[in-house]
Simulated scan of single mutants.
Amino acid sequence: MGAIGIHRLYAALSALVLAFVLLPLGAIVWVSFFANRILSFPPTGYTLSWYGRAWEQEAFRNGFITSVETALCAVAISLVLGVPASLALVRYRFPGRDAIQTLLLAPMIVPGIVGGAALFIAFIEVEVLTDFEIAGTLGGLLIAHGLIALPWTVRLVTASLAGSNLSFEEAAASLGAGPFTVFRRVTLPLIRPAIVAAALFSFVISFIDLEKSIFLVGPGRTTLQIALVSYLEWNLDSTVAAVATVQILIIGTLLIVSDRYAKLARAF
């Protein structure tokens, strides 16, 4: 097989893999327009009514609002903790540095269901010892989502810092700029694209989380993912597909914008 044949085979395999990934998403979008009252194939017609029905559902509406608010808080937590941590890990050498880096990235490795159960048990233990309620509260949910987002912020910002030119910071320091001035005037502009990408990616990771939320969400509160699972227990129509389509559009847009600021493939 010549070079041209190998190239064509590689292109064909790549197209098959891409189709395998995209076809289920395309199917969900297609199903969201089915007019069938009970989800079935082929469709009897097409309609946009499922999108309006989804927004009329209080569980979906409240779940969407809660998911957005939680994701925004997770972004703030991950940036406040992740950016200084990344700066320390890249710019300084100290005992236990590798262990701290592994600890910060651990939530990325641990399966979500395991992490959610572990956090729930840990919160219960804290409640027993301190009589301070965490499990089932908004604070506990925000802590969990902050932990979800933190590793991705550390990963993206660390990669940006490692690839930046240290001589600019050294030049600013040699001209009399203090550490804070160097960070604000030199380091921060250099890593701003990574920070923006980290914020957007952290939002996505928090927004789509189900495993930790289902353990830690309190009574009277729900996230969009939990609302979807609960709806599917008793209903089989295109409302879920409509909600999923909106999520695909939101998440896809945020990932494209994130990749515009920092090439995600380089960080992973």
Rank of each mutant, 00 (worst) to 15 (best):
E127N: 13
E169M: 00
F132H: 12
W152D: 00
A135L: 12
E127V: 07
G136I: 15
A106N: 03
L142N: 11
F180C: 08
V110N: 11
R184L: 05
A172D: 06
E125A: 15
A118P: 12
L190D: 10
F201R: 00
F201G: 00
L200G: 01
D131K: 10
E125W: 14
R155L: 06
G176V: 13
G146C: 07
I134H: 08
V204T: 01
A198G: 00
E127R: 13
L119G: 03
G112A: 04
A199T: 06
E133P: 13
T153M: 01
P151S: 07
I109H: 10
S167V: 15
E125N: 15
A162W: 06
L175H: 13
V196D: 01
A144G: 14
P151D: 06
F120T: 14
V126R: 06
L142I: 15
P189W: 09
G136D: 13
A173V: 09
L188Q: 11
I121C: 04
A162V: 10
T137S: 07
G136C: 14
A173T: 15
A198D: 05
I100W: 11
P151C: 07
F132M: 11
L103E: 05
D131R: 15
L200C: 05
L161D: 08
L142G: 14
G146D: 04
V126M: 06
V196C: 01
V186D: 01
L190M: 13
L188K: 00
S167W: 12
E127T: 15
L104D: 02
E127H: 14
G146P: 08
V204Q: 01
E170Y: 07
E169L: 09
V196E: 00
F203P: 00
L129T: 15
V154F: 06
S174H: 13
L141G: 10
G112C: 05
L161V: 12
H145R: 09
R192C: 07
L200Q: 01
E169Q: 02
A199C: 10
A144M: 06
F120H: 14
F203W: 12
F203D: 06
D131L: 07
A135V: 15
I100R: 02
E127G: 09
L147I: 13
V204R: 03
G140E: 07
P151F: 06
A149I: 05
A135D: 11
I148Q: 02
L200R: 08
V157F: 06
G140A: 14
A99H: 13
F183R: 04
R185N: 11
P151Y: 10
E127M: 09
L138T: 14
D131E: 12
G176C: 11
T181D: 04
V154Q: 04
A199V: 10
A122Y: 08
L166H: 14
A118M: 12
R192L: 06
G116S: 07
I124E: 13
V154T: 09
A117V: 14
V157I: 00
R192G: 10
I100H: 04
